[in-house]
């Protein structure tokens, strides 16, 4: 058993540094995806809430597609298809090719998936805000933008936080799929170590533990965030 643990040491003989670097990539990918997914999801929720039927329909097509496709397939569509499409467009413009590496492809694919799920969370949060809030803001003479920023958004964040927290935990797990298209994330690094050392069970167990630790850290962070979002409830 001691020999196994020494495989995790830091340096040329151990896999500790590689796995740590992979963990860093995993976390970076999830963190890079989050803001895009949130903004897109929020815009989609606005679209679905819109009185304009064409906007609602278009947004619904988006979420139906990206919630229905396996994440792995979305990733391949973006990585292979999106990349070829982009280069075709660049070539037509006479511009040099731009490399879409697996990190960017993963970020785009995961953002598409994340935004379609988060739009549903935002949508149900919108439903939790009564029309009285809009009317009250209107009565105070707030503009539409001010109403959104000062009245609706703070409540929306609180209502959407549990759902979004859940999506964040899912997102962190889904980053593992990007290892399939060559991103040197934690799963890929442990996979390499597993092949080289022939200790597959040990290294994949290490990978699982790292994801568990990440999710525990996230849960603690989320707990604080939720307490912060609820602070108004107590001070009243």
């Amino acid at each position: 058993m001691g020999e196994l643990w020494s495989l995790l040491s830091y340096g040329p003989d151990g896999w500790g540094d590689e796995i740590l670097a992979g963990t860093f990539v995993t976390v970076s990918l999830a963190l890079a995806t989050l803001p895009i997914g949130l903004v897109l999801g929020f815009l989609l929720a606005l679209a679905k809430n819109s009185p304009e039927p064409s906007l609602r329909a278009a947004a619904n097509i988006y979420t139906t597609v990206f919630r229905g496709l396996p994440e792995l397939l979305t990733l391949f569509l973006v990585y292979f298809g999106g990349q070829m499409l982009l280069q075709a467009i660049l070539a037509a413009l006479g511009l040099p090719p731009v490399e879409v590496n697996s990190f960017v492809a993963g970020m785009i694919a995961l953002s598409l998936v994340f935004s379609s799920y988060s739009s549903e969370v935002f949508l149900s949060a919108f439903k939790g805000i009564t029309s009285g809030q809009y009317e009250g803001a209107g009565a105070l003479g707030l503009s539409r933008a001010q109403t959104m920023r000062l009245v609706i958004l703070p409540q929306l964040v609180r209502l959407a936080l549990p759902g979004l927290s859940n999506l964040w935990l899912i997102l962190m797990k889904e980053t593992s799929l990007v290892s399939v298209i060559g991103l040197a994330d934690v799963l890929r690094e442990t996979g390499v170590a597993a092949r080289v050392t022939r200790e597959a069970f040990f290294f994949f167990a290490v990978a699982c533990s790292i994801y568990l630790v990440l999710s525990i850290i996230s849960s603690v962070g989320i707990g604080r965030l939720e307490a912060w979002a609820r602070r108004g409830d107590f001070s009243r």
Binding site: L93, G94, L95, P96
Partner: peptide, 25 residues
């Protein structure tokens, strides 16, 4: 399939504008 999609995309973009070619170094 793909070439058709790429062609369609390229046509769309050319309609928007063109630029100079560049030799890879």
């Amino acid at each position: 399939f793909f070439k058709r999609i790429a062609l369609a995309a390229a046509v769309t973009v050319i309609a928007v504008g063109g630029a100079a070619a560049q030799e890879p170094a």
